[in-house]
């Protein structure tokens, strides 16, 4: 095989090493700095973006917690106001009911009193009129000696008159 011709070994060894060293230097001087610069810059940008994202997330979490706390506080306040309003309404209703009951009792009492007073007045008036009539009838009987039948007739007439008057009233 031509590859085993030792005459060319020294130059091939030399040029292999030269090629390796040359490529190493060229890559280190020209290629690697470019790749590493752009990769490092990208990593820095990504780290900065991640840091910014982390900061924003923390800010959002803080705002959410604050919002939740305010929401909870507002809910409690609303519940407290509702309870207070309900309590006041209940109190007012109870108060109105009490007043209404008092008023009803007062009116009932006045009604009964009015009835009683009217009844008493009517009875008194009847008695007064009856007494006047009886007195008048008695005087009539006493002045005129009348036949018992006539007297009886007169009394009957008076009583009938009394009944009529009462009916008219």
């Amino acid at each position: 095989m031509p590859q085993f011709d030792a005459r060319f070994f020294p130059s091939e060894i030399f040029w292999t090493l030269v090629a390796f060293v040359l490529l190493f230097l060229l890559l280190r001087q020209l290629v690697l700095p470019r790749i590493r610069a752009v990769l490092d810059r990208r990593i820095r940008e990504m780290q900065r973006d991640m840091e910014e994202a982390r900061r924003l997330r923390e800010e959002a979490e803080r705002l959410r917690a604050d919002h939740d706390a305010r929401l909870k506080q507002a809910g409690e306040e609303a519940r407290r106001m509702f309870d207070e309003s309900e309590r006041r309404a209940r109190e007012r209703r109870r108060q109105l009911m009490d007043e209404w009951k008092q008023e009803m009792k007062r009116r009932q009492r006045e009604f009964h009193e009015d009835i009683e007073a009217s009844k008493n007045r009517a009875v008194r008036e009847i008695r007064e009129q009856s007494a006047a009539l009886i007195v008048a009838a008695t005087e009539k009987i006493l002045r005129q000696r009348i036949h018992p039948d006539e007297a009886e007739e007169a009394v009957r007439e008076l009583l009938a008159q009394l009944d009529e008057e009462r009916k008219e009233r």
Binding site: F8, P10, S11, F14, W15, V18, A19, L23
Partner: peptide, 15 residues
């Protein structure tokens, strides 16, 4: 011996 051969040309060319 550091003679320039087709091997050395190909090596440097590859580089």
């Amino acid at each position: 011996d550091i003679s320039i051969s087709n091997t050395s040309v190909a090596l440097i060319g590859s580089v």
